[in-house]
């Protein structure tokens, strides 16, 4: 009694498919529909404007592209910092004996907390606590604007993003490191490889998969970053830390009220994300095959 396999597929996938269609697919399609209108999100009367919104994004919307460039710059920095730090912490922790568990617990801790809450805690640090260092202890390095300066607020955001995200990547790297067979390390040592050499020729190739995953995760998160920036600077001062997600949010909900236009922007963001991911997967796949 071989039924059509597609019927079986549909039967078992039905519940997931149903919620998926209702909660994700329909809103996406509706959103794409709105992106072709001039709807302001309030007024029930709106009209179809074709691809005007997209034309405007690509020809006249400097703010959007500034935000895009900032997001790319942020993503680049945060992905590198996160992965270097996470891998570094993982290696450092693995070199310890008794304190391993403790450090892992501590570094992972921020991942348990909502970034809205974490962001507010750091807001407290950057607007109140740092000035204690300069005003009472004379550490004048701290006597500057951390979240209100176009350059330094970038570093402040990076700090909080790394604080909030490194632990997650770190535990992935730890697991990957632990899966590297001890025999390989020993063999390399017998062959006369030093610890740095061992890291590059034995450890690194073995954790390539973890590396791929961590890059994928961190890049995706970085491109959609919202909470950290929202809680720390709100995109300011001016627009100097405005990321794409905040640009879209403001376009739709803050004073400009151009909801149709904002959905057009999110469609563009979606397309960029797809492209970045596709390229990334393609490169990684080729690399992995080469090995």
């Amino acid at each position: 009694m071989k039924t059509n396999p597609n019927i079986r597929v549909l039967l078992f996938a039905a519940p997931a498919l149903l919620v998926f269609i209702a909660i994700k697919l329909v809103p996406v399609i509706l959103g794409m529909g709105y992106s072709l209108t001039n709807w302001n999100g309030i007024d029930p009367s709106w009209r179809y404007v074709g691809i005007d919104n997209f034309v405007e994004i690509f020809t006249r919307d400097a703010h959007f592209w500034t935000a895009m460039v900032f997001t790319i710059r942020y993503s680049l920095f945060v992905v590198i910092l996160l992965n270097v730090l996470a891998l570094g912490l993982a290696l450092a922790i693995e070199s310890q004996r008794r304190t391993r568990g403790l450090f892992r617990t501590i570094f992972y801790l921020p991942n348990m907390i909502s970034m809205i809450i974490g962001g507010y805690m750091w807001n407290f640090i950057f607007t109140q606590v740092v000035y204690h260092f300069s005003d009472n202890w004379g550490w004048m390095f701290f006597d500057q604007s951390w979240i209100g300066d176009p350059t330094r607020s970038f570093y402040a955001i990076l700090t909080v993003a790394v604080w909030g995200g490194a632990g997650y990547l770190m535990v992935i790297y730890i697991a990957a490191l632990q899966s590297v067979p001890q025999v390989l390390q020993e063999a390399a040592t017998i062959d006369g490889a030093g610890s740095i050499r061992r890291f590059f020729s034995v450890t690194l190739p073995m954790i390539k998969q973890a590396f791929t995953i961590c890059l994928f995760i961190s890049l995706n998160n970085a491109f959609q970053v919202f909470d950290v920036v929202f809680a720390l600077t709100g995109g300011g001062p001016g627009r100097s830390t405005q990321v794409v997600a905040i640009n879209i949010y403001e376009e739709a909900f803050a004073r400009s009220n151009r909801f149709g236009y904002a959905t057009a922007k999110s469609t563009v963001l979606f397309a960029v994300l797809l492209a970045v991911t596709a390229v990334q997967l393609w490169i990684m796949k080729r690399r992995e095959e080469e090995l």
Binding site: K24, V28, G31, I248, A252, T263, S266, T267
Partner: peptide, 9 residues
């Protein structure tokens, strides 16, 4: 899919 893209719909 970015969440902000589907928020209102």
């Amino acid at each position: 899919i970015p969440f902000h893209a589907i928020m209102i719909p």
